[in-house]
Nucleic acid binder design. Structure first.
Length: 280
DNA sequence: GTGATAACCTGGGTGC
DNA sequence: TGCACCCAGGTTATCA
């Protein structure tokens, strides 16, 4: 499941190969990828333009093209970008042909991945601002800022972390790992965290994301980097997908339950379950 | 405004 | 072996 570290890994690998090249042709093989825009509309907007920058915001990969044209792609759950794949794999949704003869494929078995074109920096900013909150690896992601975001929130802290409009880029894996690192139960209401817990959570989020980037992401089912290689962060999971195994910190068994509709893993000795509130 | 839930989608696993 | 069913989850829309 590509989250911030996986998208950042892709960005770092692709940037030297894409920036400065021309996007000769973009062939959308699955119209769903760019809906509601028509494939021809997207292809016409980007055809022949030089790639000036390859950025990332949250889990979005941002292609900055010349003339202030922006291609915004999202891998969602099972999307991957393959550079010069030896053959065209099943579930290839988009083909990017570069001016230097190389090729990039957007492969996505579950067809959740998306791409869209935005004309002008203002349109890009508005598009991202409507969807994404603070970038957790930027200086603005402080304990004070996180506390302000959480204030008054009754939703479980895990649901809060998964809400991209609050903090951008955290998905199911890194939410579980960060909450374990901070010793906070996923069901604790976000607004009920103490100042110390918020500070610990902020640090644990940053640590988990940085460790994920260092390991070139986590591969559970589908994630591969543009060269087709797997990440290794799954080997460092403390709790995620480790139900029944001993917690590396205390030895108590990791338990699995559902929060915000997502499979959630925690050590309920290190992460104390909040007591149910008594009715008034 | 907030929180919960369904829908989208398909490969893989399980049970019969 | 083949079939039906369930689960996984990021984002968006909808509802209470």
């Amino acid at each position: 499941m590509p989250e911030l570290p996986e998208v950042e890994t892709i960005r770092r690998q692709l940037a030297p190969r894409l920036v400065g090249r021309r996007l000769e042709e973009l062939e959308v093989l699955d119209p769903r990828w760019c809906a509601p825009l028509a494939p021809a509309e997207v292809a016409d907007a980007v055809r022949g333009r030089r790639i000036e920058a390859l950025g990332r915001r949250g889990k979005y990969l941002l292609w900055g093209l010349e003339d202030d044209v922006h291609l915004v792609t999202h891998l969602r759950m099972t999307g991957t970008l393959l550079y010069d794949a030896p053959s065209t794999p099943a579930h290839t949704r988009v083909r990017f042909r570069l001016g230097d003869g190389h090729e990039l494929l957007f492969v996505d078995p579950r067809r959740f991945g998306t791409g869209t074109v935005l004309l002008g920096g203002d349109a890009l900013d508005a598009h991202l601002a409507a969807r994404l909150g603070v970038e957790p690896l930027e200086p603005g992601f402080t304990a004070q800022h996180l506390a302000a975001l959480a204030r008054g929130r009754r939703a479980p802290v895990k649901a809060f972390l998964l809400d991209q409009r609050r903090v951008a880029g955290i998905g199911n894996i890194y939410a579980d790992e960060a909450l374990h690192g901070a010793g906070i139960h996923p069901l604790r209401p976000a607004g009920a965290l103490t100042r110390g817990q918020v500070a610990a959570l902020r640090d644990a989020v940053v640590a988990a994301l940085e460790a994920g980037i260092e390991a070139k992401g986590a591969t559970i089912d589908d994630f591969r980097d543009p060269e087709g290689a797997h990440g290794s962060f799954q080997d460092a999971f403390q709790v995620h997908r480790r139900a029944g195994e001993p917690c590396p910190a205390c030895g108590a068994p990791v338990v699995k339950f559902t929060v915000a509709g997502r499979g959630t893993y925690a050590c309920e000795r290190c992460q104390r379950r909040p007591r149910p509130r008594r009715a008034a």
